[in-house]
Write a protein that binds this DNA or RNA. Structure first.
Lengths: 123, 123
DNA sequence: CAGAATCCGCAATGATACTG
DNA sequence: CAGTATCATTGCGGATTCTG
């Protein structure tokens, strides 16, 4: 009775993963796991992201409850982004995934090279 | 030495995850984990995917070495897609991820509703 | 059956400028 | 500082047609 002969992937799960594992989310979560950050701190920490994409990513992560946006009433106002308890629970799964990626990167690189060779040869 | 105070996510990892966790890959891998399949079997198993996207997904997964394409020389020829050993190693990480999604879906749904309420109220 | 080729629309992305 | 607004680009997904 191997119950788990299938990893069922429905649209809700699919959508959820798209929202929390998208291009910039992992980098943002990575930073916020270390310390709370302000907007421009994040920009500096992730130089490739544009301000537009960063804004969108932060909004999305906030909407899904994995990060929190806090307005600190100083003059001028500061904005603190920080990870939520829910957000922290995301780390183990992601770490497992990244471990897999690291571990198998060499194998995959070779697979790609082999594939590309064959392509080049035939097509 | 807490070595792992950060899930570092470089472009190579990012790209890899994009390739194996994209919209249709999980569904395809799910099917091929159960049994080898032919092209149209996969189409029937995943009704929403178009032939174009399915073709692209299969090529990408093949290139990364997680599935294998085999031409069976019958008349007419049949094409068998099957999972590779490398592909099988992808299951545990993905299962962990999906478990996380299932487990936290209610929390996330509530977070979204709360967020949308606030938006509606203010914006 | 297992695709390839083509065309199209749209949503995401990037670059740039402006604002409280 | 922390964004918003606007415009240009582009890449992906869908629909359709054709082929060995």
């Amino acid at each position: 009775m191997d119950t788990e002969d299938k990893f069922l992937i429905g649209p809700p799960h699919r959508e959820l993963l798209d929202q929390v594992l998208d291009k910039w989310s992992l980098s943002v979560l990575s930073e916020l796991c270390e310390r709370p950050c302000r907007f421009n701190e994040l920009r500096r920490a992730i130089p490739q992201v544009t301000q537009k994409s960063l804004t969108a990513t932060l909004r999305r992560l906030e909407r899904n409850g994995v990060i929190e946006r806090e307005v600190v009433s100083t003059r001028p106002v500061a904005i603190r982004y920080q990870i939520t308890p829910l957000g922290k629970t995301l780390r183990p799964p992601v770490d497992v995934l990244l471990a897999w990626a690291s571990e198998n990167m060499p194998t995959i690189t070779r697979a790609r090279e082999a594939f590309d060779m064959r392509e080049e040869a035939s097509g």
